[in-house]
Simulated assay, not measured.
Amino acid sequence: MSPGGEKLDPIPDSFLLQPPVFHPVIPYVTTIFGGLHTGKMVMLQGVVPQHARRFQVDFQCGCSLQPRPDIAIHFNPRFHTTKPHVICNTLHGGRWQAEARWPGLALQREASFLILFLFGNEAMKVSVNGKHFLHYPYRLPLSRVDTLGIFGDILVKAVGFLNINPFLEGGREYPAGHPFQLKSPRLDVPCSRALSRGLWPGQVIVVRGLVLQESKDFTLSLWDESAHVSVTLRASFTDRTLAWISPWGRKRLVLAPFLFYPQRFFEVLLLCHEGGLKLALNGQGVGATSLSQHALERLAELRISGSIQLYCVHC
């Protein structure tokens, strides 16, 4: 229920995202909103301490202490051996199954890292600092996983729960993992970013944020070299509409579930292609708007305003 007692519109589970977590205390255990499903991605940013021996990231089937819950996926980097490596395994009915081992660990002590856990139809894929590292076939149904646990020698800066980028990115195996802003959990609003070369086919704009409790609207606009607005995407919280606004004020509604409710996390993706921009909300493609190639190349600035906290802006 909303603060005023008004019932919120239903949102499909595939659109739901939970806010990122900054600097959690380890050991850290949290519920995964909506559980895990194909197309979901967990992003982990952090640093391996100088004297780290091992840490583990567990995707668990529940969070009980006794009896111990099943662990569908146990991801366990080990640094204290002669050859650092990663062990993956599954705990079922209190018993560990056969270990799967990967040498050539791409994590180093005293080094920062960005790990992406990408959940496919039959296996979890893991990339470390933008490069594929391993894939681990499921031994328990992914639908049973509802809890994330992080333990051991690790300094975690941020944990993000996202849906994968729905746009094809030249056949690359992983969507680009754009880190959250870590100097401060929030960026200033209004926010402006220069587009030094305009927009070109294949470029993706990423905006992640949280809607404030007292919310009115959210606006993302693209301005050209002459300081004229070329296109605007506006969410109105009062009438729950999302629309493209032309430079002449013409409004065209985006026909998709309205996601911008107070205290809810959101991710907006704009993919530039020949002839305009494609839009995705929380990892789901929801439409496009037309813009000539000449107009795209002349774009010089991205502006963001509204009743939101910003966690990430990438363009």
Rank of each mutant, 00 (worst) to 15 (best):
G5E: 04
E6L: 15
P12R: 05
D13M: 13
P19S: 13
V21P: 11
H23Q: 13
H23N: 15
F33L: 12
T38N: 14
G39A: 08
G39I: 05
V42C: 09
L44G: 05
L44W: 02
V47D: 12
P49M: 06
H51Y: 13
F59E: 02
L65E: 14
Q66S: 14
I71W: 04
A72F: 07
I73L: 15
P77Q: 06
F79M: 09
H85I: 00
C88Q: 06
T90G: 05
G94V: 02
W96N: 04
W102A: 14
L107M: 06
Q108P: 03
E110R: 10
A111E: 15
S112Q: 12
L116S: 12
G120W: 00
S127P: 06
V128W: 01
K131Y: 11
L134I: 10
Y136S: 14
P141W: 11
I154Q: 04
L162F: 11
N165Y: 00
E169F: 14
R172W: 14
E173H: 07
H178F: 13
F180V: 11
R186G: 12
R186V: 14
P190N: 02
R193K: 07
S196C: 13
S196K: 12
V206F: 01
V207R: 00
L220I: 11
L222C: 11
L222N: 07
D224L: 01
V229T: 12
A235K: 01
F237C: 15
R240Y: 09
T241K: 06
L242W: 00
L242S: 04
A243H: 10
R250N: 14
V254W: 03
P257K: 04
F258L: 13
F260L: 10
L271K: 03
S290W: 07
Q293E: 14
A300Y: 01
A300W: 00
E301Q: 13
E301A: 08
L302I: 07
R303V: 02
G306T: 02
G306S: 07
S307R: 00
Q309I: 04
V313A: 04
